[in-house]
Design a protein around this nucleic acid. Structure first.
Length: 551
RNA sequence: GCCCCGUUAGCUCAAUUGGUCAGAGCAUCUGACUCUUAAUCAGAGGGUUCCUGGUUCGAGUCCAGGACGGGGCACCA
């Protein structure tokens, strides 16, 4: 959609009401914008409601802060400039401009140099220092910051009226010569300024930014502007997600999208969110896992598929849990869980590279070496090592569990064993560790180990005591799968079990699902690790919150 | 759902045992300044101390209930 060439095409906007096409002073030779119509020789008196005198009783209140900015907005409009700006072509990324300026570097004490190449930049005013008829601005765009110098003589009296109306947080475009100030700071010496958008809200403390975790999350837009490393963290997240996709594409995987609205939430043990479809008048639940539909696609001949998307679990929030989170699941025909261990390591290593993660990550009090091959240890070996019990003897497990106050009465021995493992072993798994060969009874979707039907070919990857990935050799025997769906484990409530009958899934298996490895990775937790973030809410742009109370 | 902790100006933070304690910096406004760097200097204004009650001569401070957040537990293979 092209920008309107004539202000008359935009009868309702600010510029058309003030007889100018652009907000730029002066009409720079560099400008890619059409030349403006004649500017009023003397702009109308720029103060509809003249600036308050010293001591006006609201100059520091929230309303007073806003009024000061709105007064400047009206002054800008009175200058014939649209305070909400318009298309601005040809701005160079500030990071590129800085690169351009490096060879011109001058030491502090040398005379200022303002004769470098001509550049055009656009961004937000982060700092603004006025020294009378000279203003220094720190301008930030998506990937960098650079100092701008605006001089009254250099830009001319008309543009200077606009400079008087600038506030922290405003968006402007600058044309100028690249050079260095007297103190050796790389600087764009402005020859023209284009006003792009007024900011009506007061920015946070310019040194500390937002500190309050609640404000940072509710007003992420402010946190992204002012928070130290915040934008970089979410850029890293974007790159990690792209890298995960690329690693899978490189191995011949197809990305697919399964249904998020389902009539039964399968594939994991979690309570779903419930909703309702009006036209069909049917209850629906939001998905809690991607698994069962991706396996249907294995049956359909999509031999390597993955989905990277949101799942929803109606459970508590914690520094490691958000009710909606991003999950990767990948399935590879003719592979098994060992195949998926190799894939998991590749995904994490590739992602660490693009995220700029150091090879040794210091996170949550652990020093984690991501470069060396991840340890592989069996579930039973870890129990023997950490607890000192005999994992093959139910009596020994029960005794050890009871000693820790774990409820054992009437519960399946494998469920007790699972509780014991969580209570004792998980926290010890600091270095990346594939825990392999789980008790079969707690793995209703997993193939049993050949000749050892009490063990399931499953692994979970733990890093810093936190579960990061979960994978199995997929169960493809439809009769056994149906039986496991029917079996309710003793001691588990129905909504705590993942054994939920799905007859269509059984029918799919009856058509023949290839032997396969399947993998799930919690993307948010992976981003936490790779960006060394302590809370999942630091890597989710808009984590869940209760509504903000009124007044 | 349970336990502990927190909430003071737009933002970041002070305020002794309940007693001139409503304070600072940034931001805002006025003035000075053509090389500043969280600019500086001079001046001014800005408060429902989260809310509702209670105790007290007196509450930001103590008590009860509520709201929101942080941490832990439960939940979550």
């Amino acid at each position: 959609m092209a920008r309107p060439e004539n202000a008359a095409d935009r009868p309702h906007d600010w510029a058309s009401r003030f007889c100018s096409h652009t907000g730029q002073f002066p009409s720079s030779a560099l400008s890619s914008l059409p030349p403006g119509t004649s500017m009023p020789a003397v702009p109308p008196d720029p103060s509809p409601d003249n600036s308050p005198a010293s001591g006006t009783p609201m100059s520091g209140t929230a309303a007073g802060l806003e009024k000061a900015r709105r007064d400047k907005l009206l002054k800008i409009a009175a200058l014939g400039i649209d305070p909400w700006g318009s298309r601005f072509d040809g701005a160079q990324p500030i990071a590129d401009v800085r690169h351009l300026g490096e060879p011109l570097r001058r030491a502090e004490g040398e005379p200022a140099a303002d004769d470098g190449p001509t550049v055009r930049v656009a961004g937000r005013i982060m700092l603004l220092r006025s020294a009378g008829s000279l203003v220094f601005i720190s301008l930030a765009d998506r990937a960098g910051r650079i100092q701008i110098m605006l001089g009254k003589k250099q830009v001319g009296p008309d543009a200077w009226k606009l400079v008087d109306c600038l506030d922290l947080g405003d968006l402007i475009g600058i044309d100028g010569r690249l050079g260095y100030s007297k103190t050796g700071e790389m600087t764009v010496f402005a020859t023209a300024i284009t006003f792009l958008t007024k900011s009506i809200e007061t920015p946070p403390d310019k040194f500390h930014g937002l500190v309050d975790a609640e404000l940072k999350q509710r007003m992420r837009y402010v946190d992204l502007i002012h928070g130290e490393g915040v934008r970089e963290r979410f850029i890293a997240r974007s790159r990690i997600v792209a890298s995960v996709r690329q690693t899978l594409f490189d191995r011949g995987y197809l990305e697919v999208e399964g249904p998020t609205l389902q009539d039964s939430a399968g594939g994991a043990a979690a309570r779903p969110f419930k909703t309702h479809h009006n036209a069909l008048d049917m209850p629906l639940v939001l998905r809690i896992a991607l698994e069962l539909h991706l396996k249907r696609l294995l049956v359909g001949g999509m031999e390597r598929v993955f989905e990277l998307g949101r799942v929803y679990r109606n459970e508590g929030v914690s520094p490691r849990h958000n009710p909606e989170f991003t999950m990767l699941e990948a399935y590879e025909a003719y592979g098994d869980y060992a195949t998926m261990m190799d894939l998991t390591e590749a995904i994490i290593r590739d992602a660490a590279k693009v995220a700029g993660t150091p090879s040794t990550v210091h996170w949550m009090g652990h020093a984690i070496d991501l470069a060396k091959p991840f340890r592989r240890a069996t579930y039973d070996d870890l129990l023997r090592e950490v607890v000192g019990c005999d994992p093959t003897d139910p009596a020994s497990i029960t005794t050890a569990a009871a000693a820790l106050g774990i409820d054992t009465a009437g519960r399946h021995p494998d469920v007790v064993k699972s509780d014991l493992f969580e209570a004792t072993c998980e926290g010890t798994l600091s270095a990346p560790t594939f825990v392999i060969d789980y008790p079969a009874a707690i793995c209703p979707l997993t193939k049993r180990k050949s000749g050892q039907p009490h063990l399931a070919e499953r692994f979970e990857l733990y890093v810093a005591g936190m579960e990061l990935a979960n994978a199995y050799t997929e169960l493809n025997d439809p009769d056994l799968q149906e039986e496991l769906f029917r079996t309710q484990l003793a001691g588990l409530a129905s909504d705590e079990s993942m054994a939920r009958m799905d007859t269509d899934f059984i029918r799919a298996l009856r058509h023949g699902m290839p032997p396969a490895g399947g993998l799930g990775i919690g993307i948010d937790r992976l981003v936490m690790l790779l960006t060394q973030s302590a809370s999942i809410r630091d890597v989710i742009l808009f984590p869940i919150h209760r509504p903000q109370s009124e007044g």
